[in-house]
């Protein structure tokens, strides 16, 4: 995110975490344990998260699975289309260090070389509870930021 005044950022993030709209960009198996998150038991709509269908409406871009040289260009384009304030969640080990494909000639090894990543969720593939823990960490971080700003 661009540098904003801390008070403004605390207010914007405070409003953002109440209703997060997600855009998915999945390549392969990293996502298979994320699909139940939308469904009945690990219901993600109770926290206000819904899935939208184009990046211009979205706040968070979830990048899952290995990215190739061809698809990382599209990811950068999609990231540039999202309006501020925005965040990126890197899902799965393949986006953190290359994962299972660390010695492949066609995949990229670290997602953070290409776009700024807010939170990493390790796992191959990560369990649904891991995604909820990640979202919870973002909530705690924003609440702490708001407390700091209010305390000043």
């Amino acid at each position: 995110m661009v540098d904003m005044d801390k008070k403004v950022m605390a207010r914007k993030m405070g409003r953002l975490i109440r209703s997060i709209w997600i855009f998915n960009w999945f390549n392969s198996c990293g996502v298979t344990e994320l699909l139940p998150v939308v469904a009945s038991i690990y219901d993600m709509e109770r926290f206000g998260l819904i899935v939208v269908d184009n990046p211009k409406h979205a706040d968070v871009l979830i990048v899952g699975g290995y990215q190739t040289e061809k698809s990382i260009k599209r990811v950068i384009r999609i990231y540039n289309q999202m309006p501020e304030p925005k965040a990126v969640m890197a899902l799965g080990s393949c986006t953190i260090t290359g994962g299972m494909y660390w010695d492949s000639y066609n995949t990229i090894k670290r997602l953070s070389d290409y776009i700024p990543v807010t939170i990493y969720v390790p796992g191959c593939p990560p369990r649904p509870e891991a995604v909820f823990q990640a979202v919870g960490m973002i909530f705690e971080h924003v609440n702490q930021l708001k407390k700091e700003v209010k305390g000043k």
Binding site: T68, E69, K70, K73, G98, D103, S104, Y105, N106, I108, K109
Partner: peptide, 27 residues
């Protein structure tokens, strides 16, 4: 189909050293 901006040798040939390529490009 799969490779964009590929300037090297075709990768499935046995004389293409993919380990050297990955090592020098990414690490």
């Amino acid at each position: 189909l799969f490779l964009e901006d590929w300037n090297e040798k075709p990768p499935f040939r046995k004389d293409f050293d993919w380990r050297e390529y990955v090592r020098s490009k990414y690490y």
